[in-house]
Amino acid sequence: MKFLCLTCDEVMAFAERELPGDGTLTVIFTCPGCKREMALLTNPMETQLVTSLGVEIGGRTVPQQPMQQTRMGLESPLEDAFEAPETPPAARGPVTWATEATERLEKVPRFVRGMVKRIYADYAMEHGIHVITPEVMDRARSDLGLEGM
C-alpha cells in the first residue's frame, strides 16, 4: 500500500501510527515535498487484516516473539502449553523484577507469560533499566503499543 501526493508526484512517507484501543488504526503519512499530511483510518476488520499478515505499519516496536501471532490470537488456549527452559538464559543482563511487577506478571495468562516477560526485559535493557516495576511495565506498554499485554 502506497500513497502518492498528486500535487508533488512523490510517495508519501510514513510518519506516525496510533492504536486508539478500540480495534481501529490511524496511520499518518506526510508528503516529503509539500509536507501535506493525510491519515489512513481503518475499521476493526481492516485493522485485523493487517494484524493477520503479521506486520506493523511503520515497523515493529519490539522484535517478533516466537509464535506471537498464534499465542496472541488463540481463543481458549491451553494455559500451560508452554513452559520455561529449565536453565534460564544467563546472558539477559542485570534486570530484576520488583515484587509488585512479578505479581502483575503472574496475572498474565501462562500461555503468553514467557513471551511478555521477555518483551519487558528487553525493553528494560534497551533503556538501561535494572529493576522492572509496574511503572516500567506501564511505560513499556505505552511506548511499544502493547495492547492486551
Binding site: M1, K2, F3, L4, D9, V11, M12, A13, F14, A15, V27, F29, G54, V55, E56, I57, G58, G59, R60
Partner: peptide, 17 residues
C-alpha cells in the same frame, strides 16, 4: 503513476517485514 512505478521507500516497512 501506478503502484509499480513509484518507490518502495515509504517508511511503512511492510515489505521488509
Amino acid at each position: 503513476r501506478g503502484y509499480a512505478e513509484v518507490s518502495h521507500e515509504t517508511g511503512s516497512e511492510l515489505l521488509e517485514q
